[in-house]
């Protein structure tokens, strides 16, 4: 038995270390570097002007249809949100007043106009907002009639920290706070190759409408938070308040980020 095992052992060694036979191997190391790509294309003008020089504009508001078109390409799951910002000359959360007309207006003329007076409407709606908790999860609700009151329904989300992702209680354009697959973020893809059903846009293409509805007196009655808290000039400043005539500016940022 001992001899047999020894013979097998040496045969094994011979097999393991022998050469002189045709065998050879070449190797190719394949390295794949997948870099995260988040591309947001905005092909429309980066300036949207609202000039209120007619009484009908005050009553009916001014709407800029499809003033912004957003196209997304992403190699990772993503969220997209809009955030209103300003320089903060009138305080965080208020438009910047660049110029005052009529010598500053009367005693009740208010220069601190809330950013939430800007209303947005998006098309298509947010498809990945299953875990959103706010009253509105996106801007897909149609603009209310000028005669109706819709506090905060279409008001833009605003923040002094625009690059901090909004909470689950706020509006997103696509995706939402959280990382549940298929519920809180849109999957990677591109408007270039997405193939939506007829009559719809893909998950990677959005049109944005803007509206400002001052009303008369100009108090911006629909301005408010997503929770429905009124931010119109009367609610904040008291009866008799109205917007100080002048030139105001604010900035809308569209932020595309990896799902988080």
């Amino acid at each position: 038995m001992k001899k047999i095992i020894l013979i097998f052992s040496f045969l094994g060694m011979f097999s393991a270390f022998s050469f002189g036979q045709l065998i050879d191997e070449k190797n190719v190391t394949v390295t794949m570097d997948l870099q995260p790509i988040l591309q947001l294309n905005m092909t429309t003008s980066d300036q949207v002007d609202f000039v209120f020089d007619d009484i009908r504009d005050y009553y009916g508001g001014i709407i800029r249809y499809a003033a912004t078109i957003l196209k997304v390409s992403s190699s990772v799951s993503w969220d997209l949100y809009a955030v209103g910002t300003s320089q903060g000359n009138n305080g965080v959360g208020f438009w910047d007043q660049q110029m005052t007309y009529s010598g500053g207006g009367g005693a009740n003329a208010i220069s601190a106009l809330p950013l939430s007076l800007l209303e947005l409407h998006q098309y298509e709606p947010n498809q990945y907002d299953a875990n959103a908790t706010g009253a509105q999860t996106d801007y897909s609700t149609a603009f209310s009639p000028a005669s109706a009151l819709a506090v905060g329904v279409s008001s833009i989300y605003y923040s002094g920290a625009p690059y901090t992702a909004p909470l689950a209680t706020e509006k997103y354009i696509q995706g939402h706070k959280g990382t549940v697959a298929g519920q809180d973020g849109a999957p990677g893809g591109s408007y270039l190759i997405a193939n939506p059903p007829a009559g719809t846009f893909s998950d990677y293409y959005f049109t944005i409408d803007y509206r400002i509805l001052p009303g008369l007196p100009a108090i911006f009655k629909n301005a408010g938070t997503n929770a429905g808290a009124a931010e119109d000039l009367v609610s904040v400043n008291g009866a008799g308040a109205y917007a100080n005539p002048g030139v105001y500016t604010m900035n809308v940022k569209y932020v595309l980020l990896e799902d988080q």
């Binding site: 045709l22 394949v30 794949m32």
Partner: peptide, 14 residues
């Protein structure tokens, strides 16, 4: 996204 690696081996054998 990230960096990944594999190796492809070519074997010639009698």
């Amino acid at each position: 996204t990230g960096t990944y690696q594999i190796k492809i081996n070519f074997c010639l054998v009698e």
